[in-house]
Amino acid sequence: MTSELTRDQAGPTGVSVRLGAVVKEFETETGELIRALDGLSLDVAAGEFIAIVGPSGCGKSTLLNILAGLDRASTGLVEIGGAPARGPHPEAGVVFQSDYLLPWRSVLDNVLLPIEIKGLDRKAHVPAAEQLLADVGLAGFGAKKPSELSGGMRQRAGICRAIIQKPGLLLMDEPFGALDALTREQMIIDLQALWLRLGNTVIFITHGIDEAVFLADRVIVLSPRPGRIDLDLKVDMARPRQWAEAHADPEFQRCIGEVRRCFERRGVLHRAQG
């Protein structure tokens, strides 16, 4: 990805998201009711980058599925762009941990899948798709099959697919969780550049405290199940942030420390003994 930092004037600005006392309960095989989300309230401004961190099983992915319209809240309010969300939102693009590229389609045809599904003119979107691929360093890979790409390249193609329609809301569920450390670092840096260019709203779910603090305007820490907001932390650092420099920044260290202390209080993380 190029670090072209001028905001795309033609692109949409992000859409706002509002969650009001969202509760999600599941019934288990034994008939037991499990509460995954326990009255979650959150206001996300248009164009804001929100990272949600929390231990495994805290309901992060449930929350993302609700926002993506793949699941419904048991009770509570879910608003996207000021209107109650019913089903998948046309302004939302989703990236999962697994790239879910269709193995029989070329990379380009994978990127164009949302266009096909929405019944839009495929041909008219080919140049845009090729440009997106070039932007993420996949120029000339459009005709290749996903199996010919590395994990990081596949996830980049998956991101292109999610943003082909310039969604006002980008939902990302641990998108870099399956990548090696070096690839992950580059993807984080590139995602920041991409977001700065698109100006959309991003809700980014992760296990990684450092990537959450580095990327986000606000880091939301969820408690162990049932998921509640434990901490809503504003990260006050200028953009674009540089990976190495950011780690030395006192604000970065303060935020990391706050999130860690939050996890320690909950027993998610323990300090070394002795």
Binding site: P88, F96, L113, I117
Partner: peptide, 24 residues
């Protein structure tokens, strides 16, 4: 996950079937 991805793009079950389930 493949079906969910397509549904998140607003695909109907018919589309999920012809674009994803059947070819897979």
């Amino acid at each position: 996950g493949f079906a969910n991805l397509a549904k998140s793009m607003g695909a109907s079950e018919r589309q999920v079937f012809f674009k994803i389930r059947l070819p897979a």
